[in-house]
Write a protein that binds this DNA or RNA. Sequence first.
DNA 1: GTCATAAACG
DNA 2: CGTTTATGAC
Lengths: 364, 364
Amino acid sequence: MLEAKLQEAGLLKKLLDAIKELVTDANFDCNEEGINLQAMDNSHVALVVVKMESTGFKKYRCDRPMPLGVNLASLTKVLKCAKDDDTCTLKAGDGLDSLNLVYEAKNSDRIAEYDMKLMDIDAEQLGIPDTDYDARITLPAAEFTRIVKDLSLLGESVRIEVNKEGIRFVSDGEAANGSVLLKPTDGKVKIGDDNDDEEEEEEEKEDEEDEDEDSAKAKKKAKKQKKVKKESNDDVEMNGDEENGDEEFTAKSDDEGEDEKEDEEESEGSSKKRKKASSSKSKKPAKKAKTKKDDDEYSGGVDIAMNQHVTLTFSLKYLVNFSKSSSLSDSVQLMMSNDVPLLVSYSFESGYIRYYLAPKIGDD
Amino acid sequence: MLEAKLQEAGLLKKLLDAIKELVTDANFDCNEEGINLQAMDNSHVALVVVKMESTGFKKYRCDRPMPLGVNLASLTKVLKCAKDDDTCTLKAGDGLDSLNLVYEAKNSDRIAEYDMKLMDIDAEQLGIPDTDYDARITLPAAEFTRIVKDLSLLGESVRIEVNKEGIRFVSDGEAANGSVLLKPTDGKVKIGDDNDDEEEEEEEKEDEEDEDEDSAKAKKKAKKQKKVKKESNDDVEMNGDEENGDEEFTAKSDDEGEDEKEDEEESEGSSKKRKKASSSKSKKPAKKAKTKKDDDEYSGGVDIAMNQHVTLTFSLKYLVNFSKSSSLSDSVQLMMSNDVPLLVSYSFESGYIRYYLAPKIGDD
DNA sequence: GTCATAAACG
DNA sequence: CGTTTATGAC
């Protein structure tokens, strides 16, 4: 049995607005820790992951894991019937095939109740590799939206380049080419170990990257992990030691709604520190508090950390779609490594929405 | 000859916006008391009645009754040429087949003049029964709009239930069912005689409703009439004694533009008080002042008075259409009796727009 | 306010 | 089936 009371229906509305054009049906996997959603987009090109932690709810109770198969168009309609500041209580019985939503207006006698049919969705859950990203960029969500929208007017794709200058978005179109460069607000691209206090190391890194990246990386790994974790502004880890770090999503057949955690458990064994850091992300109150703090404190600037130059090309159509999530957060993080899917992450209080998009091959 | 000067062209614009999608052509029946419009919607399911009392005009003169046959699309176009705060003077000559409109900007030398062709409309005037409604609900117009729009996302029809809890709107759709309950703002559904000062009678009523409604009603009729009239916040009578109360519209062949008044004269004879109250509504300055006062004073709450439980089902499409009139008033009144057309009424200074909609039979 | 899509109409 | 019209997105 699930009973989850959200203080503001608006959060759910925004989440659905963000994903409903990408995904038609998806399981809301509810368990005691919260609600997770994971789905490939309709054309099976992008992966959407939503997490709403139980602590983000005013009331939360879920006795046992329940995958709630939802048609997102239906849920969107039902949520349209809520005002943003209504409270929203989700209820689902163990054996029932419907989701009950109750909206209560803040200071009013209006109570609206909806019952939405659920469906069985054959969820091919994907294992999300816990990638070592070579570049992490935090920028204002509105800035990202603006850039991808602008460039989408010119061409189909955008090449994103991260180097010590900053991050550059380049689109070549029929009629015009466009290039947008964002420099880090503090003027410094945090290089290598993500530590801008050690300037000499920064220099060292720059040289290495252009010649012998792998050895440089290997050499710095252990240090990087700690430092990135310690000072980064975000929930997404920039580095890890797993050998599967650069692989694409691997299909899994289970349906247990704790995929991310399980992935970590399955694939990790080499680094105790990483494992701890990684799983704390999805469970520990300490981490949640940090997320909230980050959002509240986000200053509107551009922050760039990288281990090596990254250049990737993506379909703008998808990035534009992802950028709809900017209603959920002031900032967005881009995580990139060469030849690895881009991770676009919007964090909100007690949760996040993340998108993974495979790069185009070649440089079309 | 008609000459009617409206202080604000905006009023006419709003009225046309409200009905132009429901009705294509209609007679503006002008007489010395004002301008009335009465028309079935294009699919002959709903009835629209508009009244603009002469006192609502800055200048008003109409020597003899004139039905002005107007294509509403044309009039809408012509009215688009006026600014909302322009004055608008309507002129029509006795023998002429056109309507002259003059717009004068408030503090300007701009005078615009339009002539619109009139047409002969074979108006089958309908006699509107002066129904005894068993439930009267006053609610914020925006709330009503919101509810019917929301529910129209889910299904075609809405079942409206009025009972001592409040008013409930229920829609069953393919993907989801919805139910919105509005409780009266003061917490009390005024039951039976509409008098909430007599609590013990309220209790008594509640019991009666569930068992022997007719006798209870009969017993209380005389008192109800007075009290409802006295304290109700609206222009629409909730109760009356006529035997034609529960009949549907009856077609009339005349075309004289004073239908409502004539109806009253024709059908009433039993209750002097009612007649007086009813006709004063459309004529006396005292009543107009009250209407205005009501609008000004409307507090935004939900007020419910009922004699017995009412449950009716309506097509949401029409209710959504009706709710476009909310630009004309902050509040809307719903008047309902079982098996009788719903009356939806928006009052504005010196006039109103009303819609009648027959309930669906069965409960589909 | 304009545009694009979706429903309604002929 | 094409046209027209209403409604929602930008």
